[in-house]
Simulated assay, not measured.
Amino acid sequence: MTGNALFEPYTLGALTLSNRIVMAPLTRNRAGAGFVPGDIAAKYYSQRATAGLIISEGAQISQQGQGYQDTPGIYTQAQIDGWRKVTDAVHSKGGHIFLQLWHVGRVSHVDLQPNGQAPVAPSAIKPETKVFVNNSFADVSEPRALEFDEIPGIVADFRRAAANAIAAGFDGVEVHGANGYLLEQFAKDGSNTRTDAYGGSVEHRARMILEVTAAVAAEVGAERTGVRISPVNGVTSTDPQAQFNYIAEKLGQMGIAYLHVVESATGGSQEVVPFSYADLRAKFGNTYIANNGYDVERAVSRLTQGAADLFSFGRPFIANPDLVERLKTAVPLAEVNPATIYGGGAEGYTDYPSIAAVSCA
Protein backbone atom coordinates (compact mmCIF):
# COMPACT_ATOMS: atom_id res chain seq x y z
CA MET A 1 0.00 0.00 0.00
CA THR A 2 2.92 2.34 0.58
CA GLY A 3 3.24 3.27 -3.09
CA ASN A 4 -0.36 4.14 -3.86
CA ALA A 5 -1.54 7.67 -4.55
CA LEU A 6 -3.76 7.78 -1.46
CA PHE A 7 -0.63 8.53 0.57
CA GLU A 8 1.00 10.94 -1.88
CA PRO A 9 0.76 14.77 -1.74
CA TYR A 10 -2.18 16.63 -3.22
CA THR A 11 -2.51 20.31 -4.10
CA LEU A 12 -5.61 22.00 -2.70
CA GLY A 13 -5.67 25.67 -3.58
CA ALA A 14 -2.48 27.18 -2.13
CA LEU A 15 -1.95 24.19 0.18
CA THR A 16 0.09 21.06 -0.44
CA LEU A 17 -1.52 18.28 1.53
CA SER A 18 0.79 15.46 2.61
CA ASN A 19 -1.76 12.82 1.59
CA ARG A 20 -5.33 12.44 0.32
CA ILE A 21 -6.82 11.46 3.67
CA VAL A 22 -9.07 14.01 5.35
CA MET A 23 -10.26 14.01 8.95
CA ALA A 24 -14.00 14.62 8.74
CA PRO A 25 -15.82 16.95 11.16
CA LEU A 26 -16.62 15.18 14.44
CA THR A 27 -18.80 16.73 17.14
CA ARG A 28 -17.21 15.98 20.53
CA ASN A 29 -19.02 18.39 22.93
CA ARG A 30 -15.98 19.43 24.95
CA ALA A 31 -15.96 23.22 24.68
CA GLY A 32 -15.46 25.16 27.91
CA ALA A 33 -17.19 28.19 29.37
CA GLY A 34 -18.33 30.61 26.70
CA PHE A 35 -18.23 27.75 24.16
CA VAL A 36 -14.48 28.20 23.88
CA PRO A 37 -12.26 25.31 22.74
CA GLY A 38 -9.66 24.64 25.42
CA ASP A 39 -6.09 23.39 25.61
CA ILE A 40 -7.35 19.81 25.43
CA ALA A 41 -8.80 20.53 21.97
CA ALA A 42 -5.40 21.75 20.81
CA LYS A 43 -3.88 18.46 21.95
CA TYR A 44 -6.65 16.42 20.32
CA TYR A 45 -6.31 18.04 16.91
CA SER A 46 -2.51 18.13 16.93
CA GLN A 47 -2.46 14.39 17.63
CA ARG A 48 -4.26 13.94 14.30
CA ALA A 49 -2.19 16.41 12.27
CA THR A 50 -0.79 13.72 9.95
CA ALA A 51 -4.11 13.81 8.08
CA GLY A 52 -3.66 15.60 4.77
CA LEU A 53 -6.39 17.97 5.93
CA ILE A 54 -8.33 18.26 9.17
CA ILE A 55 -11.84 19.68 9.02
CA SER A 56 -12.78 20.73 12.52
CA GLU A 57 -15.95 19.89 14.36
CA GLY A 58 -18.76 22.26 13.54
CA ALA A 59 -18.47 25.67 15.20
CA GLN A 60 -21.72 27.58 15.52
CA ILE A 61 -21.66 30.97 13.82
CA SER A 62 -23.90 32.50 16.51
CA GLN A 63 -25.74 31.42 19.62
CA GLN A 64 -28.82 30.99 17.44
CA GLY A 65 -26.84 28.47 15.40
CA GLN A 66 -26.20 26.12 18.36
CA GLY A 67 -28.00 22.81 18.66
CA TYR A 68 -26.10 20.79 21.26
CA GLN A 69 -24.50 21.61 24.59
CA ASP A 70 -20.77 22.30 24.86
CA THR A 71 -20.11 22.78 21.15
CA PRO A 72 -17.59 25.50 20.27
CA GLY A 73 -18.46 28.79 18.64
CA ILE A 74 -16.66 31.19 16.34
CA TYR A 75 -18.44 34.48 17.10
CA THR A 76 -16.57 35.93 20.11
CA GLN A 77 -13.00 37.04 20.67
CA ALA A 78 -12.53 34.43 23.37
CA GLN A 79 -13.55 31.71 20.91
CA ILE A 80 -11.15 33.08 18.29
CA ASP A 81 -8.35 33.01 20.88
CA GLY A 82 -9.22 29.46 21.89
CA TRP A 83 -9.18 28.26 18.29
CA ARG A 84 -5.83 30.00 17.74
CA LYS A 85 -4.29 27.54 20.18
CA VAL A 86 -5.72 24.70 18.09
CA THR A 87 -4.45 26.00 14.76
CA ASP A 88 -1.01 26.80 16.18
CA ALA A 89 -0.76 23.26 17.57
CA VAL A 90 -1.78 21.66 14.26
CA HIS A 91 0.55 23.86 12.23
CA SER A 92 3.45 23.09 14.57
CA LYS A 93 3.02 19.45 13.56
CA GLY A 94 2.99 20.30 9.86
CA GLY A 95 -0.77 19.86 9.46
CA HIS A 96 -3.49 21.85 7.72
CA ILE A 97 -6.91 22.61 9.21
CA PHE A 98 -10.20 24.14 8.03
CA LEU A 99 -12.99 25.24 10.38
CA GLN A 100 -16.51 24.02 9.71
CA LEU A 101 -19.08 26.82 9.90
CA TRP A 102 -22.33 25.58 11.44
CA HIS A 103 -25.89 26.75 11.90
CA VAL A 104 -28.21 23.95 13.02
CA GLY A 105 -31.46 25.72 12.18
CA ARG A 106 -34.40 23.72 13.53
CA VAL A 107 -32.24 21.02 15.16
CA SER A 108 -32.06 22.79 18.50
CA HIS A 109 -33.74 23.36 21.84
CA VAL A 110 -35.07 26.49 23.53
CA ASP A 111 -32.59 26.00 26.40
CA LEU A 112 -29.76 26.61 23.92
CA GLN A 113 -31.30 29.58 22.15
CA PRO A 114 -30.92 33.28 23.03
CA ASN A 115 -33.52 34.21 25.66
CA GLY A 116 -35.17 30.81 25.29
CA GLN A 117 -36.50 31.63 21.84
CA ALA A 118 -37.71 29.02 19.37
CA PRO A 119 -35.13 27.60 16.96
CA VAL A 120 -35.34 29.02 13.43
CA ALA A 121 -35.95 27.16 10.18
CA PRO A 122 -37.00 27.86 6.60
CA SER A 123 -40.47 26.54 7.55
CA ALA A 124 -42.10 25.74 10.89
CA ILE A 125 -41.74 21.98 10.53
CA LYS A 126 -40.43 20.09 13.56
CA PRO A 127 -38.04 17.22 12.77
CA GLU A 128 -38.25 13.86 14.51
CA THR A 129 -34.86 13.97 16.18
CA LYS A 130 -33.20 14.70 19.49
CA VAL A 131 -30.42 16.98 20.69
CA PHE A 132 -28.02 16.70 23.62
CA VAL A 133 -28.88 19.42 26.15
CA ASN A 134 -28.77 19.67 29.95
CA ASN A 135 -26.66 16.50 30.01
CA SER A 136 -29.28 14.33 28.37
CA PHE A 137 -31.00 13.77 25.03
CA ALA A 138 -34.25 15.67 24.47
CA ASP A 139 -36.67 16.18 21.59
CA VAL A 140 -35.97 19.28 19.56
CA SER A 141 -38.17 22.29 20.24
CA GLU A 142 -40.85 23.55 17.87
CA PRO A 143 -39.15 25.83 15.33
CA ARG A 144 -40.43 29.03 13.79
CA ALA A 145 -40.10 30.04 10.16
CA LEU A 146 -37.55 32.73 9.42
CA GLU A 147 -38.92 36.03 8.18
CA PHE A 148 -37.62 37.05 4.77
CA ASP A 149 -35.83 40.08 6.19
CA GLU A 150 -34.00 37.94 8.78
CA ILE A 151 -32.15 35.89 6.21
CA PRO A 152 -29.50 38.48 5.24
CA GLY A 153 -28.46 38.61 8.91
CA ILE A 154 -27.71 34.89 8.93
CA VAL A 155 -25.70 35.22 5.71
CA ALA A 156 -23.75 38.02 7.41
CA ASP A 157 -23.17 35.78 10.44
CA PHE A 158 -21.60 33.14 8.18
CA ARG A 159 -19.40 35.78 6.57
CA ARG A 160 -18.30 37.16 9.93
CA ALA A 161 -17.59 33.68 11.24
CA ALA A 162 -15.41 32.96 8.21
CA ALA A 163 -13.39 36.10 8.88
CA ASN A 164 -13.05 35.06 12.52
CA ALA A 165 -11.78 31.64 11.46
CA ILE A 166 -9.00 33.16 9.39
CA ALA A 167 -8.18 35.47 12.31
CA ALA A 168 -7.89 32.32 14.44
CA GLY A 169 -5.30 30.91 12.05
CA PHE A 170 -7.34 28.40 10.07
CA ASP A 171 -6.20 27.58 6.54
CA GLY A 172 -9.77 27.83 5.31
CA VAL A 173 -13.40 27.14 6.16
CA GLU A 174 -16.05 24.60 5.29
CA VAL A 175 -19.66 25.73 4.96
CA HIS A 176 -21.85 23.07 6.57
CA GLY A 177 -24.67 22.39 4.16
CA ALA A 178 -25.28 18.77 5.16
CA ASN A 179 -26.83 16.38 7.69
CA GLY A 180 -30.17 18.06 8.14
CA TYR A 181 -28.94 21.46 9.37
CA LEU A 182 -30.04 24.93 8.29
CA LEU A 183 -28.62 25.19 4.77
CA GLU A 184 -29.82 21.70 3.90
CA GLN A 185 -33.20 22.55 5.41
CA PHE A 186 -33.49 25.32 2.83
CA ALA A 187 -32.30 23.08 -0.03
CA LYS A 188 -34.76 20.21 0.48
CA ASP A 189 -38.51 20.33 0.06
CA GLY A 190 -39.02 17.98 3.01
CA SER A 191 -38.20 20.92 5.27
CA ASN A 192 -38.82 23.94 3.03
CA THR A 193 -42.38 24.83 2.04
CA ARG A 194 -41.70 28.55 1.57
CA THR A 195 -43.39 30.41 -1.27
CA ASP A 196 -40.95 33.33 -1.47
CA ALA A 197 -37.59 33.58 -3.24
CA TYR A 198 -36.09 30.96 -0.89
CA GLY A 199 -38.62 28.20 -1.56
CA GLY A 200 -40.44 26.28 -4.26
CA SER A 201 -38.19 25.70 -7.26
CA VAL A 202 -34.79 24.02 -7.35
CA GLU A 203 -33.20 27.41 -7.96
CA HIS A 204 -35.00 29.12 -5.08
CA ARG A 205 -34.27 26.35 -2.57
CA ALA A 206 -30.59 26.51 -3.54
CA ARG A 207 -30.45 30.25 -2.97
CA MET A 208 -29.53 30.15 0.73
CA ILE A 209 -26.52 27.83 0.46
CA LEU A 210 -25.30 29.68 -2.62
CA GLU A 211 -25.65 33.12 -1.00
CA VAL A 212 -23.83 31.95 2.12
CA THR A 213 -21.00 30.37 0.12
CA ALA A 214 -20.62 33.43 -2.09
CA ALA A 215 -20.43 35.66 0.99
CA VAL A 216 -17.86 33.43 2.67
CA ALA A 217 -15.75 33.15 -0.48
CA ALA A 218 -15.84 36.92 -0.92
CA GLU A 219 -14.59 37.32 2.64
CA VAL A 220 -11.78 34.74 2.79
CA GLY A 221 -11.18 33.72 -0.84
CA ALA A 222 -12.76 30.95 -2.90
CA GLU A 223 -9.54 28.93 -2.65
CA ARG A 224 -10.02 28.81 1.13
CA THR A 225 -13.70 27.86 0.99
CA GLY A 226 -15.22 24.37 0.90
CA VAL A 227 -18.81 23.14 1.19
CA ARG A 228 -20.22 19.94 2.66
CA ILE A 229 -23.49 18.45 1.38
CA SER A 230 -25.44 15.23 1.92
CA PRO A 231 -27.85 14.83 -1.01
CA VAL A 232 -29.70 11.74 0.28
CA ASN A 233 -28.90 11.90 4.00
CA GLY A 234 -30.71 14.02 6.58
CA VAL A 235 -33.85 15.72 5.32
CA THR A 236 -35.92 13.99 2.64
CA SER A 237 -36.15 15.47 -0.85
CA THR A 238 -38.27 14.55 -3.85
CA ASP A 239 -35.61 15.63 -6.35
CA PRO A 240 -32.13 15.22 -4.82
CA GLN A 241 -30.33 14.68 -8.14
CA ALA A 242 -31.73 17.80 -9.77
CA GLN A 243 -31.36 19.86 -6.60
CA PHE A 244 -27.76 18.97 -5.85
CA ASN A 245 -26.55 18.84 -9.44
CA TYR A 246 -27.70 22.46 -9.66
CA ILE A 247 -26.02 23.38 -6.37
CA ALA A 248 -22.79 21.62 -7.37
CA GLU A 249 -22.69 23.36 -10.75
CA LYS A 250 -23.18 26.79 -9.21
CA LEU A 251 -20.57 26.12 -6.50
CA GLY A 252 -18.14 25.00 -9.19
CA GLN A 253 -18.67 28.26 -11.04
CA MET A 254 -17.65 30.11 -7.87
CA GLY A 255 -14.27 28.35 -7.99
CA ILE A 256 -14.37 27.13 -4.40
CA ALA A 257 -11.68 24.76 -3.17
CA TYR A 258 -13.72 21.61 -2.73
CA LEU A 259 -17.07 19.89 -2.45
CA HIS A 260 -17.28 17.44 0.49
CA VAL A 261 -20.03 14.89 -0.11
CA VAL A 262 -21.66 12.53 2.39
CA GLU A 263 -22.49 9.71 0.02
CA SER A 264 -25.70 7.86 0.94
CA ALA A 265 -26.77 7.62 4.61
CA THR A 266 -24.30 8.27 7.39
CA GLY A 267 -23.40 4.99 9.05
CA GLY A 268 -26.00 3.15 6.99
CA SER A 269 -26.67 1.66 3.60
CA GLN A 270 -24.70 2.93 0.63
CA GLU A 271 -27.77 2.45 -1.57
CA VAL A 272 -30.45 4.58 0.11
CA VAL A 273 -31.93 5.99 -3.09
CA PRO A 274 -30.62 6.05 -6.65
CA PHE A 275 -28.16 8.92 -6.97
CA SER A 276 -25.26 9.55 -9.35
CA TYR A 277 -22.28 10.97 -7.52
CA ALA A 278 -20.40 10.86 -10.82
CA ASP A 279 -22.87 13.40 -12.22
CA LEU A 280 -22.46 15.53 -9.11
CA ARG A 281 -18.67 15.44 -9.42
CA ALA A 282 -18.83 16.35 -13.10
CA LYS A 283 -21.13 19.30 -12.42
CA PHE A 284 -18.78 20.64 -9.73
CA GLY A 285 -15.55 20.11 -11.65
CA ASN A 286 -13.08 20.78 -8.84
CA THR A 287 -11.71 18.84 -5.86
CA TYR A 288 -14.24 16.26 -4.69
CA ILE A 289 -13.99 14.82 -1.17
CA ALA A 290 -15.86 11.53 -0.74
CA ASN A 291 -17.17 10.56 2.69
CA ASN A 292 -19.02 7.68 4.32
CA GLY A 293 -17.80 4.19 5.13
CA TYR A 294 -14.50 4.28 3.28
CA ASP A 295 -11.58 1.94 3.89
CA VAL A 296 -8.27 1.86 2.03
CA GLU A 297 -9.39 -0.62 -0.61
CA ARG A 298 -12.57 1.25 -1.49
CA ALA A 299 -10.77 4.61 -1.50
CA VAL A 300 -8.01 3.32 -3.76
CA SER A 301 -10.61 1.85 -6.13
CA ARG A 302 -12.52 5.16 -6.35
CA LEU A 303 -9.27 7.09 -6.77
CA THR A 304 -8.13 4.80 -9.57
CA GLN A 305 -11.48 5.31 -11.31
CA GLY A 306 -11.10 9.08 -10.99
CA ALA A 307 -14.34 9.19 -8.99
CA ALA A 308 -12.94 11.31 -6.13
CA ASP A 309 -9.79 13.24 -5.20
CA LEU A 310 -9.74 13.09 -1.40
CA PHE A 311 -11.40 10.78 1.12
CA SER A 312 -12.63 11.78 4.55
CA PHE A 313 -12.72 9.46 7.54
CA GLY A 314 -14.75 10.28 10.65
CA ARG A 315 -15.15 7.78 13.48
CA PRO A 316 -11.86 5.95 12.75
CA PHE A 317 -10.00 9.16 13.64
CA ILE A 318 -11.55 9.20 17.12
CA ALA A 319 -9.73 6.09 18.36
CA ASN A 320 -6.79 6.28 15.95
CA PRO A 321 -4.92 9.58 16.16
CA ASP A 322 -2.34 8.14 13.75
CA LEU A 323 -4.95 6.80 11.35
CA VAL A 324 -2.92 7.64 8.25
CA GLU A 325 0.00 5.48 9.39
CA ARG A 326 -2.32 2.65 10.40
CA LEU A 327 -4.01 2.68 7.01
CA LYS A 328 -0.70 2.89 5.21
CA THR A 329 0.81 -0.06 7.08
CA ALA A 330 -2.40 -2.09 7.47
CA VAL A 331 -2.14 -2.05 11.27
CA PRO A 332 -5.52 -3.00 12.82
CA LEU A 333 -7.59 -0.04 13.93
CA ALA A 334 -8.43 0.60 17.57
CA GLU A 335 -12.12 0.52 18.47
CA VAL A 336 -14.08 3.58 19.57
CA ASN A 337 -15.54 3.63 23.07
CA PRO A 338 -19.10 4.88 22.37
CA ALA A 339 -19.56 6.01 25.98
CA THR A 340 -16.91 8.73 25.64
CA ILE A 341 -17.68 10.16 22.19
CA TYR A 342 -19.75 13.10 23.40
CA GLY A 343 -18.71 15.28 26.33
CA GLY A 344 -16.32 14.63 29.20
CA GLY A 345 -12.59 15.21 29.39
CA ALA A 346 -9.45 13.46 28.21
CA GLU A 347 -10.88 9.95 28.42
CA GLY A 348 -11.91 8.85 24.96
CA TYR A 349 -10.60 12.12 23.54
CA THR A 350 -6.85 12.51 23.86
CA ASP A 351 -5.91 9.21 25.54
CA TYR A 352 -6.15 6.87 22.55
CA PRO A 353 -2.57 5.69 21.93
CA SER A 354 -0.65 5.76 18.67
CA ILE A 355 1.07 2.71 17.19
CA ALA A 356 4.38 3.92 18.56
CA ALA A 357 2.99 4.31 22.06
CA VAL A 358 1.51 0.82 21.97
CA SER A 359 4.80 -0.63 20.70
CA CYS A 360 6.72 0.98 23.56
CA ALA A 361 4.27 -0.18 26.23
Rank of each mutant, 00 (worst) to 15 (best):
V120T: 13
L323N: 08
A217V: 09
N291G: 10
T266G: 11
T304C: 05
G293R: 08
V220W: 13
S269E: 08
V227E: 02
T340N: 14
I209M: 14
L182D: 05
Y44C: 08
D196H: 05
Y68W: 10
P338E: 00
T195A: 07
Y349S: 04
H91Y: 11
E325N: 15
A278G: 15
M23D: 09
G293E: 10
V262C: 07
T129I: 02
A145M: 01
A356I: 09
G177F: 01
V140A: 14
K328N: 08
Y349V: 06
Y277K: 01
N19H: 06
M23F: 08
E57K: 14
G255P: 00
F311E: 00
E211L: 12
N179E: 05
H91A: 00
S312Q: 04
A161W: 13
A290Q: 12
D239V: 06
L112R: 15
K283V: 03
A242S: 13
L210R: 01
S312V: 09
R205S: 04
G306N: 09
E203D: 13
K43M: 13
L303T: 13
G73Q: 00
N115I: 12
R224P: 04
T76K: 02
Y44K: 03
H96K: 15
L26I: 09
P25V: 01
D171T: 03
Q69A: 10
A59H: 12
F35R: 08
G190Q: 15
P37A: 05
L310Y: 11
M23G: 01
T2I: 15
I54M: 01
G180Q: 00
A42D: 08
T76F: 03
S56E: 06
D81K: 00
E249I: 10
D295R: 06
G267V: 01
K126I: 03
G268S: 09
A24P: 13
G34W: 05
G267H: 07
F275K: 05
